[in-house]
């Protein structure tokens, strides 16, 4: 899962730093991810896992770190 998240961030996150240097709990917005890039990350994650983020998950905290993205995807995909 983490590898896929990092691949999506590398392709769509438009981060000014190498994703490999970002730790799981680092703040992606502090690292330079914009709100529009977040949309692309969201859509790419949905494509990867065939899920859809509901409105209730559209919050900054959902996408603010690799850990939080992993948690959100786990909720969407189930155990």
């Amino acid at each position: 899962m983490d590898e896929m998240i990092r691949a999506v961030l590398a392709e769509h996150g438009r981060l000014p730093v190498d994703v490999a240097t970002i730790r799981d709990d680092d703040d992606l917005y502090q690292a330079g991810m914009t709100s529009h890039a977040t949309v692309n990350v969201m859509l790419a994650l949905e494509d990867e896992l065939d899920v859809e983020f509901p409105e209730s998950m559209l919050r900054k905290s959902t996408f603010e770190s690799i850990t939080s993205i992993r948690t959100a995807l786990s909720e969407l995909t189930g155990p």
Binding site: R14, T34, N40, L43
Partner: peptide, 24 residues
Amino acid sequence: ADVVEVHQVADSVAHFGDRYLRRI
């Protein structure tokens, strides 16, 4: 206030197509 780079939106339309448009 907010600012967006136009080419980023163009890239999103090109990559995700209708799904991007109708989601936003």
